[in-house]
Design a binder for these strands. Structure first.
Lengths: 345, 345
DNA sequence: GTGGGTAACTAAAGCGCTATAGTCAACGCT
DNA sequence: AGCGTTGACTATAGCGCTTTAGTTACCCAC
């Protein structure tokens, strides 16, 4: 054990001011029980002595841990697709630090490990609430979170809305935005390199694409599932581009796969955007540094993270809180990777 | 406040077994004071009741928080270069979870914010130790960490070795590996797109390059400083490639800048690797997905993270621990972005 | 001027666990 | 028999904070 500096305690302040520790606690927490004069005096001394609450002591009294959890289930081989979540994390931290909370982010192998981590955290009182990301169809985590009594917010709509508060954007509308644009450019064979079909957002996007294709009488509209890895993104692209009737545009569910797809096109000697247009569903530094830069859907991810944090704080404060916040649909940022297809020029 | 399930406490176990809470504490912590028979019985009941230690309660008694901190100082605009640290984080978490600890990673704007976060954490007893990354020349964090009495490990050698335990690899040797290879291919004008000169590793690499250039009688050897952003990486590349005597090979201090540099070369119609070879100091998914894939230095970052965690645990356990662990020098992975320069064919 | 209300405190218990100082019986030794 | 030891516990205090139940002192109304 180590002496970590003799931090002042509430008792020290009490002694110095000449009141009881209870009074100091009242003053520091802004609750009634002390005169304004005394309160001011206590606050002044506290600042002078550089007092900070001892988290553990508070948590022991049943208060909050001051930490919220964010778990990313990732196969180590799929690592690399965390740009988006890094931004979310940043946004959450900025919002939470104002409420002197922190985000505990952890990477685990799979959903099973994620769930056991939640149980662990709950039993150790480590977190006050959770953010669930990468929502799945029939997501097993939702039942667990309720059982544990942990406040939680989902990033993205869960299958059965209303189970948990959530922060979401309309994936179907986003896909429609893309198809609108591609169709206006005269693309008629549009393919979709998707994530694993078990994810809600992938399912929604695929469904929206099918609906659009039918509505507009386009040719293709196939969604090829992948595990989100660059390898499978590249493989899917190779397969699509090797067909007799190859698509003139491919929409990718992630920036990483889109960049990998661009690499494959270059490797196969297919010119982007002349012979193939590429659109990414995510924006990040990645879409900007490749050449040509990728047309993509973009949104303020930092603000999204902040919104998630805000909603989670509400859910923590009020156990019955169950509202969902719809955020702006991502907007299209057109860069060099999209153009009119060669055939229609 | 919310009822978070009625977790069993040590008192519950004591009641059930018929001993005092103190005896249970002894048994659960593997210290003498109970017979082997009683100990076994207590452990059995504890498992049966699914008991878990209450972190806060332990921490209050002066024990550890079970959290180590990792702060990344990043201008939001420079965000995107965290691939490496995501891997480090993963490696640390895997190692630490075996010791039922966690990593608290936080992104902040700059070193000033980083330091005040350390003070904050120390005063709240939030972390047991710290990992300092991106070591600077004359790093102000070192003094603060010592003042706070927080155990810490640096990733990379600090300016004055021996101040803190560190985990490091030889940057000079790494640069030499690259120059060896490029010189063997007959490159004679080698440039370096570096990070901010205030960073130790950037300084070491630049110095090693200069030394090599002198030793081998090569032409250039200039290091262009940047802020690690893709924008400055691209700008530096553009500047270098616009010179009358442009380099035939550029070494980049990060994968992100290397990829951005490749984008610039493509944009300027300079063929890679025929007219320009590109080498990145970091490996990541990024170097693999661009086309051509980038030659780079690679190492087992996950293992590196685990090593950092191990060293930090030692430093936490023993305040006088001050050893440094040298890890393997990154090895060169040759991919499509390097070749013999056109001029020498 | 007495009862009752209220503001401004103090006293004390308790959160779950650890750690230290007992207690008590059994044992060995001179 | 008397004494010190040892092992296996129990009792208790305490970590820093919150919170509830007092306790004063004071003011107001009848």
């Amino acid at each position: 054990m180590r002496a970590v500096g003799n931090r002042p305690t509430i008792a020290d302040i009490a002694k110095r001011v000449g009141v009881s520790p209870g009074a100091v606690s009242f003053a520091l927490n802004g609750r009634p029980g002390v005169s304004e004069q005394t309160r001011a005096r206590i606050l002044e001394v506290a600042r002078e002595m550089n007092w900070r609450p001892h988290r553990a002591a508070r948590a022991l009294g049943g208060a909050q841990a001051g930490v919220v959890g964010l778990v990313l289930a990732r196969d180590p081989r799929t690592l690399g697709s965390e740009q988006f979540y890094t931004q979310i994390l940043y946004g959450m931290q900025d919002m939470l630090s104002a409420h002197s909370s922190a985000v505990q982010m952890q990477l685990v192998r799979d959903t099973t490990a994620e769930i056991s981590l939640y149980r662990h955290w709950a039993s150790e009182h480590r977190v006050d609430g959770l953010v669930l990301v990468d929502l799945q169809l029939d997501d097993p985590r939702i039942a667990v979170v309720r059982e544990l009594g942990l406040p939680a917010v989902t990033l993205g709509l869960p299958g059965e809305p209303g189970q948990l508060p959530s922060v979401w954007a309309d994936d179907a509308e986003a896909m429609t935005t893309i198809v609108d644009y591609l169709a206006a450019l005269d693309h008629r064979r549009i393919a979709h390199v998707a994530g694993p079909p078990v994810y809600q957002h992938t399912a929604r996007r695929a469904a929206a694409l099918r609906a659009q294709v039918t509505e507009r009488g386009l040719h293709a509209g196939e969604s090829v599932p992948t595990d989100f890895s660059d390898a499978q993104g590249a493989a899917a692209t190779r397969a699509l581009l090797s067909r007799a009737e190859r698509p003139t545009a491919i929409v990718y569910d992630s920036d990483l796969m889109a960049a990998a797809g661009l690499g494959v096109a270059l490797e196969m000697g297919i010119e982007v955007p002349r012979q193939l247009s590429i659109v990414s569903f995510d924006d990040s530094v990645l879409t900007r540094i490749v050449h040509p830069a990728l047309t993509c859907l973009s949104r303020d991810t930092h603000a999204l993270g902040a919104q998630v944090a805000t909603t989670l704080l509400e859910a923590i404060a009020d156990a019955s809180f169950r509202e969902s916040v719809r955020t702006e649909t991502p907007h299209l940022v057109v860069r060099g990777s999209t153009a009119r297809p060669l055939s229609s020029r």
